[in-house]
Amino acid sequence: MSATQKTSRTPRRYGMVIDLDRCTGCGACVIACAAENNVAPGAARENDRNSISLLRVFTLNNPTAAGRRTAFLPMMCMQCEHETPCVTVCPQQAVELDVLSGIVEQMPQRCLGCRYCMTACPYHARSFNWGDPSWPAGMEATLNPAVAPRMRGVVEKCDFCQSRLHAAQDAAAVNGSLDPGIYTPACVEACPTQAITFGDWNDPEGALAKSGETFAWLEGLGTQPKVRYRSGQNWLHEMAERGGAAPAKEERHG
């Protein structure tokens, strides 16, 4: 960002608050995300570790016998703001934190596929394209023309539906502004219980500021994620500090 920049855009810090008490684990957001972002259907060889998932929903079980409960944890790129781990480690500068949107931008064109960022990400929110994407015959017609499919050998992750940000900016430009404003990412739109609130942390009057007390997953790492959670259940707060129970207790979903 040059010091001479003249664009009329006010910097935004896009983020989310996800209400875990509202999430039913239905997985509609996962499907909407994949459809929006042209994620190809998994090949037969794909499993938990080598598939592409920009958004996942984990099942969490309360480990204490007394209050046996289950909750669901939607998790995408947390858009960390402080010493963003993936940005720091990338040898290619293929990841950067956009100062105008606060979004951690992933550039497949520059990515060399070393996957260092995947190791660095505390949330495992990144996926690697082990193969070229392929769609069953006829399904290509349903692709989203505003999103370029990623090629083999690069890492990808959630970018808060950049194509929708672009569309919102185009609409604003007709009225003489470059500010995309508060647009709606695909997962937010798809959620039947409206568990996900999308907004701008810079806006003191906005929906995020009004969402009450929130917590981050693994807050202690100090990466200042812009995706935060909300819940009235104490055990979820505790689990968030520890980063979930032992992995064996979590099973992936979607």
Binding site: T7, D98, E105, M107, Q109
Partner: peptide
């Protein structure tokens, strides 16, 4: 863009 003082991040021009 440089002449006009515009700065679009990578994902401003890419998708």
């Amino acid at each position: 863009h440089e002449q006009k003082g515009v700065s679009a991040g990578c994902l401003g021009c890419h998708r």
